[in-house]
Structures are given as structure tokens and as C-alpha cells.
């Protein structure tokens, strides 16, 4: 039993304990033992092994460099994806805006043609006023602009984020005080326009709006004073200083506001009833 390798090998059961106690590969010790027994290797053999080890070290160095490059290269790749997404978002936004402008133009065209068909100036005026009141027509007049902005830490603190409820309560206060036309960030409100939450964002009708929110309202001359003194304005003014909200809140009196027409909502369930005393409706049931 001179050669330790001839002994029946005793396997270390507790591998991890062994690993923690002596992390060096036991083969090194064994090789040293062998060498001590066998005596030094021939010089050419030794030199050859040394050269192989150097080549391996060169390879390891290359491995480090390549792995580092790989890790660094990953970062611009992510940046590229992000930039691509941003450019797609802007492109889509531009398209949406173009479509909205087109829709408005067509709406104007429809209005003009209808007035041509209608003929009677009194009826035209009546139709115009009804449309202005319902939000289907552009209106101008004096009023105010309420500016509501997220708190400075909106990205991390939910309390700093303006939610749909904030806009609803301001809009409702304005309606209550006699406002005749209201728009949020250029989106005119009708009696059918919901202000609701979609995920983290706020939708006015079908349109996504982002802060800061500008609520423009046209109404009676004392609308500004009344709104400034309202409980709603008091609450939001107080919240400007409250650390849990810190909303930006500002009310400006503004003359000659111009509010756009709302996009015509599609009525799917409500139908216009046949006018009283008219003959029975046609079988298609359109009512008109």
C-alpha cells in the first residue's frame, strides 16, 4: 500500500462541509505527492505542460474580455428597443391627431351640408344652438381654466397621482356652478363623455389624457369667483401643501376661450322616437 491511489477510495459524504473547509481541488495535493514520489519530470515534458498552461491562460483572458464585451453590448440593445417603442408611440400619436383633425373637418362638412339641406335660417340657428349646448359644436366665450398636475413624486407615490375622481369632482363642480361647455386637455365633454380610469391612465371619452390636466370651462361671469370659493377648490388648494398629495392646482380666469366640438358619440341603444302625430314608422324601424 505504497501508492495512495491503490487504497479503496473513501468518498466524502459531506461534500459541502469538505468544500467549505478546504476549497482547493484535492487533485493539486495528490499531484504534488505523486511528483515527490516519482521525482521531477523530464524537462521537455515539463516545458510542454507549462506552455499548454500559458495558452490556457491566454484563452481565459480572452474569455473574460469577450464576456465583458457581451455584457456591455447588451445595454445599447435594450436602449434600442426602448427608442423603437418611443418612436412607435409618437408615430401612433401623430396618426391619432391627424385622424382627429380629419374627423373634425368631416364633422364641419356634415354640419355645413345639413344646413344647406335645412334651408330655413331659424331652424339652422336652432340646430346650431342645440349642438353648442350638447357639445357637438365649437363654442367660444369667457370662463376659466383649472390646471391640475400630479405631485412631484407621482412616479413612486400613488397619492401624488391625479386620478379620474379628481377630474370628475372638478368637472361636476363646474357643471353645478353653471358652466355651459367644458373640455379637458382639448377634449370636449358631452353628457355622454365618461371620465374614467384605464390602468394607470385617465380616459376622457375614448381619448387618453395625460397630466398636467387643463380643464377649460365657459360659463356665467361669476363662474371664476364661485369656483374659487367652492369647497372643491378649497380642498385642492389645501392638498397643494399636504405631503401625501402635493398636487399642482391653479385657477385662471380666461376670456375668449375656444372649446372644440366633441367627437359625435355613437348611439347604439337609444333611438329617436317618431315625432308625435306622424305616420307609423317604416318597417326598418329607424324612427325617422
Amino acid at each position: 500500500m505504497t501508492d495512495p491511489r491503490m487504497k479503496p477510495r473513501i468518498y466524502q459524504v459531506d461534500f459541502l462541509t469538505q468544500l467549505f473547509r478546504d476549497p482547493l481541488d484535492p487533485a493539486y495535493a495528490q499531484a504534488a505527492e505523486d511528483r515527490a514520489k516519482r521525482g521531477p519530470l523530464p524537462a521537455w515534458n515539463k516545458a510542454g505542460r507549462r506552455v499548454v498552461a500559458w495558452i490556457l491562460l491566454v484563452a481565459i483572458g480572452m474569455l473574460f474580455a469577450v464576456a465583458y464585451k457581451q455584457a456591455v453590448r447588451g445595454a445599447p440593445e435594450r436602449e434600442k428597443v426602448r427608442a423603437g417603442l418611443i418612436s412607435r408611440i409618437t408615430a401612433q400619436k401623430e396618426r391619432t391627431n391627424a385622424r382627429a383633425a380629419e374627423a373634425e373637418e368631416l364633422q364641419n362638412e356634415v354640419n355645413r351640408l345639413r344646413e344647406v339641406v335645412l334651408g330655413d335660417p331659424a331652424k339652422i340657428q336652432q340646430a346650431r344652438e342645440l349642438e353648442a349646448a350638447t357639445g357637438m359644436r365649437r363654442v367660444s366665450g369667457d370662463g376659466l381654466v383649472v390646471r391640475l398636475a400630479d405631485g412631484p413624486e407621482a412616479a413612486t407615490r400613488t397619492g401624488h397621482r391625479v386620478i379620474d375622481f379628481d377630474l370628475q369632482i372638478i368637472v361636476n363642480t363646474l357643471w353645478y356652478l353653471g358652466a355651459e361647455a367644458i373640455s379637458i386637455n382639448g377634449r370636449r365633454l358631452t353628457s355622454l363623455t365618461p371620465i374614467r380610469k384605464g390602468g394607470e391612465a385617465i380616459y376622457v371619452g375614448d381619448a387618453l389624457v395625460a397630466g398636467p390636466y387643463e380643464i377649460s370651462a365657459i360659463g356665467p361671469p361669476d363662474l371664476y369667483d364661485d369656483f374659487s370659493k367652492s369647497d372643491t377648490a378649497k380642498v385642492y388648494r389645501a392638498w397643494q401643501e399636504r405631503p401625501e398629495h402635493r398636487f399642482g392646482f391653479k385657477i385662471n380666469q380666461r376670456d375668449d376661450l375656444l372649446l372644440p366640438a366633441a367627437v359625435m358619440p355613437e348611439l347604439r341603444f337609444a333611438k329617436v322616437p317618431p315625432p308625435a302625430g306622424s305616420p307609423t314608422p317604416t318597417p326598418t324601424g329607424g324612427g325617422r
Binding site: 498552461a53 500559458w54 495558452i55 491562460l57 491566454v58 484563452a59 481565459i60 483572458g61 480572452m62 474569455l63 473574460f64 474580455a65 469577450v66 464585451k69 457581451q70
Partner: peptide, 19 residues
């Protein structure tokens, strides 16, 4: 050995072998 390692790093940085 240290030199060999450095040579490898420099070579890897210059040659940029593709993995």
C-alpha cells in the same frame, strides 16, 4: 502567467471574436 492572462484580455478586446 499573469502576462499570458493580460495578453488574452488584450487579444479578446482587440479581436472581438464572436460567440
Amino acid at each position: 502567467a499573469v502576462l499570458a492572462l493580460l495578453v488574452g484580455v488584450v487579444a479578446g478586446a482587440l479581436l472581438e471574436p464572436t460567440v
